[in-house]
């Protein structure tokens, strides 16, 4: 691991990721923290501290993510689409498809040679195809989100939900419970709803193997397993799934 040549910051709506890379593109340093409401100041402080700690006051910085245009220090602002593609390509070394299920939006990016974006599709108008869908349900059922995935994989029974709208799904879920349907099949049905929407987005974007999964929801084993079944393609979670954007940004800066 060499010295820092470039920095990348992914200023997301939920978390802020900072990555430093060396000349080979390997990770020198990374950090993840919750995004503060004062994200511009937070980003500035984070970058300044990193430059100090790594002894890299002049390393170029590329900013990506929701708040990218707020980062004054950045040499360039690049979208999370382009950055994710670059970052994931570095990890896999081959053309692939990335499915990123975030808290607020879901992206499918088909990545070609050199990490170039071949096509992309985003589901951003509706919460039903994003992590929010599961968060809302978990909250309503008063279950920790980390337990949600394993619960969905318990047994084989599945209770299909007809509502794809988060609001309707919530009330449908409650009435199923009231009717005495067991919890695990309902939770599996919820996961199925989410996965179906994501798979439809992925098919529309021309997803092809190998398929990688990133974003907060990537940690959910049920999402990965059901998505695999739905797509008929192996779905792999890359190392450091949360860092793909910031890593790609750092690679583009260098």
């Amino acid at each position: 691991m060499g010295s820092t040549v470039a920095l990348g910051i992914d200023l997301g709506s939920t978390t802020t990721k900072l990555v430093a890379v060396d000349a080979t593109g390997a990770l020198v340093h990374h950090s993840v923290q919750s995004t503060a409401p004062t994200m511009a100041q937070q980003a500035a402080a984070l970058v300044a501290q990193a430059r100090l700690d790594l002894g890299a006051p002049d390393a170029p910085l590329v900013a990506t993510g929701y708040g990218r245009h707020l980062v004054q220090d950045a040499a360039r602002q690049v979208t999370e689409i382009t950055c994710h593609a670059r970052g994931v390509f570095h990890a896999t070394g081959q053309p692939c498809t990335l499915i990123d299920i975030g808290g607020q939006d879901t992206k499918v990016i088909t990545i070609g040679a050199g990490g170039k974006v071949m096509s992309f599709a985003m589901n951003d108008k509706c919460a039903a195809g994003t992590g929010r869908f599961l968060e809302v349900a978990a909250q309503r059922l008063q279950l920790p989100i980390d337990a949600f995935g394993p619960l969905a994989l318990e047994g084989d029974a599945e209770e299909p939900l007809s509502s794809t709208c988060v609001v309707f799904a919530e009330s449908e879920m409650i009435s199923l419970l009231a009717r005495g349907v067991a919890l695990a099949p309902i939770v599996r049905g919820l996961h199925r709803s989410l996965v179906r929407r994501v798979a439809a987005l992925a098919r529309g974007a021309g997803a092809q193997a190998p398929v990688l999964l990133s974003g907060g929801v990537a940690r959910n084993p049920a999402v990965r397993a059901l998505l695999e079944a739905e797509l008929g393609l192996a779905v792999v979670v890359p190392p450091h799934p949360q860092l793909a954007g910031a890593w790609g940004a750092a690679l583009l800066a260098g």
Binding site: S162, S171, E172
Partner: peptide
């Protein structure tokens, strides 16, 4: 389209 139908509502 049954997905645009909410039985509860």
């Amino acid at each position: 389209d049954p997905r645009s139908f909410s039985e509860e509502q």
